[in-house]
Structures are given as C-alpha cells and as structure tokens.
Design a protein around this nucleic acid. Structure first.
Lengths: 174, 174
DNA sequence: TATTGTTATACTCTATAACTATA
DNA sequence: TATAGTTATAGAGTATAACAATA
C-alpha cells in the first residue's frame, strides 16, 4: 500500500543530447527529490526508518498474498521453528513485543494449526511454542518470501555490500 | 520505554579460568541470546527493524524530554527549515506520511509558534510551511539531539563504519 | 510475594472517506 | 474534472492494568 516510492529517480544518467523537454538546468533536482539535500535526509536514523518501511511493506505484501500472514506472525513462527522451544515470555523479550501481543499472534498461528502451546514441565506457568509439520512448511515458505523481499529491496547493492550491511546492522541490533 | 535491550551480552570474552559459577559449557548462549543464532535474526529486514526501533525510541525520548516533540514533528520542522519552502503535499510525499497526518503535525508546530502556514501565491490551494526564528532555534537543537542519538545508538561502530552504513542506507532509501 | 499468560482496555499510529476551496 | 488541505472516523499497532494459575 505505502510502497509508492517512485523508482528510477537518480538513475537517469547517460542522457547525452537527447533532451526532449528543454530542462537544461544542471543541478536542481525535480519535484520532491530536492529534499534529499536536506540534512535530515542524511541522518542514519531517518534513512534506517525509510529502509525499514520499504522492507516491511514489501515483505508484508508478499506474506499476506501467499500465506495470509504478516511479518510479526512470521517472526514468532520462525523463532519457534528454530528448534529452541521458546516460551511466550522469551518471544516477547527477543522480538520486542508486549506479552499481550504475543498472545494474539500465537492465537492466530494456533488457530491455523501452525503451532501448539505446550506447558513447560519445568515451570507450569510457561507455555512453550511447538511448531507442527504444516507450521514448518509455512515457515520455510515464509522464509523464502522474506528472503526474496530482502533481495528485491536491496537489489541496488552488490552481494558484498549486502553482507557489509548485514554485519553492521547485526552489531547495532545486538 | 521499550529500550530495555540489555547491553553487555556478547562482550563477556576473556574469561579464562576465572570460572566462578560452574558454567563450563563452551558455546551455549544464555537466556534469550540463544535466538540470535536463528535464521530470522540474520535477515537484514529483521535487523533493520530492530535498529530502527532502538534509534527511534532513543531519539523520541531525547526530543520529548527537552523539546516536547517527537521524531515525526522534528522531521516536518527540519525539512521546512531547510530553505526549500515545502508544501504540505510535498512533506507528505517525501516523509511517507498521510496528508492528514501532516495536518496534525503542522497544527502542533504552528500552535507552538515554530512554523506558519502561507498560501502559495502560484497555487492558492497549497500551503507552504515557513519556519519562524524560534522554529529555527528548536530545529537546530532538535538536530543536535537526533545527531547525539544517532551517535549513541551507533557507538559500537567506528566513524568509517558509520559512513559506510550511511552510504548503503542512502542507496536503499532513495 | 513474584512471575507467566491472559483478558480487557486505552492510547497511538496509520489509513480512508467526505467536504471546501481552488485549479 | 482534478487536486490541496481539512475533518471525522475507522482500523491497526502498541501499551497498561487487573486477574488466575503457578512458582
């Protein structure tokens, strides 16, 4: 929905002498692109927010279209499917979600038969989230979709640059 | 509020033989850190969302404490203060905000005397946002605060790495 | 007493539809 | 007719408080 950022903004090089409309001013970006020179637009915080918005929007669209899930659902499912038997409390802490949000997300996943709540025998207050076979299949497909989303949003970067970015973000995130 | 990510998680190297409590297992991260080995936690999309959440949370806290503003208010103010005389429509497009959101944000800024709405003489439907002297002072302070927030959140990176990150994110965001 | 999960609730953010004034 | 701004409103996302079961 909100992925309306027009592509091909700065890629209009190699124009040469094929000037159709008479726009010969050398360095005055058209339309809203002139704000890219703003000092706000150079702040990493601002850029990260934009990049995340694009990424989440794109991934949400892919996941919703094929699996009827959102990124938040997939996050819970993916951690649960990693063989670590997380409790809801742990999911809440690791994914920066409120415990009540985890309840709602697990409810959806459970209703679709993708996960099951199992009481932890070591602490009967806790619920360990186990993933069903179908859940593992959906998680696998969701992973492929989110990876494809990543590649598309980061298509302007080389493989090496993507790994650079992953490394830098990992150090910030943890 | 949500910036409760505990620091000093993986920095416990160089422990040698000073094992106080008998935890001699070589590679089993404690608590919630074991989920960092999840393949979800390696996705750039996931990492960017985390980094942004930390950054926005921190910047919001600083801005609210000293200026009573949020990042979204500062974004509008900062673009308006850049000498580009943006209209609300342009702010909406560049900042990925709904036009109705821009109305509310400009309302707040105007009520505090930081900006003024001026009808564009070339198109009397549009409102150009002009920044007052006080608005420029607040924007300057807000910029310093958000820069400080950036530096603190990115403290784990060297200056060179920060510029690398800025460059990569710029290409993704635009 | 403290904690996990749960429910209900409120608050914020975001998106939509209808209206006005201009074009 | 179409667009900029405005208003009201609905929906999603997020946070808070109270409760039951368990520690």
């Amino acid at each position: 929905m909100t992925t309306a950022i027009p592509t091909g903004t700065a890629a209009d090089t190699a124009n040469g002498t094929t000037a159709g409309t008479a726009t010969e001013a050398p360095a005055e970006p058209a339309g809203v692109d002139r704000f890219r020179a703003t000092r706000l637009a150079a702040q990493i915080q601002f850029l990260a927010a934009r990049a995340r918005a694009r990424g989440t929007g794109h991934a949400n669209a892919l996941l919703k279209a094929e699996l009827g899930l959102k990124v938040s659902h997939f996050s819970v499912l993916s951690v649960a499917a990693s063989g670590t038997s997380p409790t809801q409390r742990e999911l809440s802490e690791f994914l920066d979600l409120d415990p009540s949000q985890v309840v709602a997300l697990v409810d959806v996943l459970e209703q679709r038969g993708l996960v099951e709540r199992m009481t932890d025998p070591k602490d009967r207050r806790s619920r360990m989230i186990a993933v069903t076979e179908e859940g593992h299949r959906v998680e696998q497909r969701g992973y492929e979709l989110t990876e494809a989303s990543d590649r598309e949003v980061l298509a302007c970067l080389s493989d090496e640059e993507r790994e650079q970015l992953r490394g830098l973000l990992t150090r910030i995130a943890f």
